[in-house]
Computed example of a mutant assay.
Amino acid sequence: MSERLQPGDAAPDFSLPDADGNTVSLADRKGRKVIVYFYPAASTPGCTKQACDFTDNLELLATAGYDVIGVSPDKPEKLARFRDKENLKVTLVGDPSKETMEAYGAFGEKKLYGKTVTGVIRSTVIVGEDGAVRQAMYNVKATGHVAKLIKDLKI
Rank of each mutant, 00 (worst) to 15 (best):
F38V: 08
D152H: 00
Q135N: 03
F107K: 01
S43G: 05
T63Q: 15
Y113P: 09
G119E: 07
A132F: 14
P40A: 04
P45L: 03
Y113R: 14
P96W: 09
T116I: 15
L149W: 10
D74C: 02
E102L: 13
S2Y: 06
A64N: 15
D130P: 12
L16H: 04
V24E: 05
M101D: 11
I126E: 01
P40H: 06
F54A: 07
V90F: 14
I69H: 05
K110E: 03
F54N: 08
P45H: 02
T63G: 11
L112E: 06
A42R: 10
A41P: 12
K30V: 09
D13Y: 07
A142K: 05
D18N: 15
G8H: 09
Q6Y: 14
V125H: 00
A103Y: 01
T118W: 12
L92A: 00
C52G: 07
K75G: 04
A103M: 01
D130I: 10
K89P: 05
L5S: 13
R122I: 08
G105H: 03
V140Y: 06
V71K: 09
K110F: 03
L58H: 09
I150A: 04
V120P: 00
L60Q: 11
L16A: 03
G131F: 12
Y138N: 07
S2C: 12
N87R: 13
L61N: 06
G114C: 08
P17N: 03
K141T: 06
Y66V: 05
G65T: 12
C47T: 10
G128H: 10
F107A: 00
L26R: 06
Y37G: 03
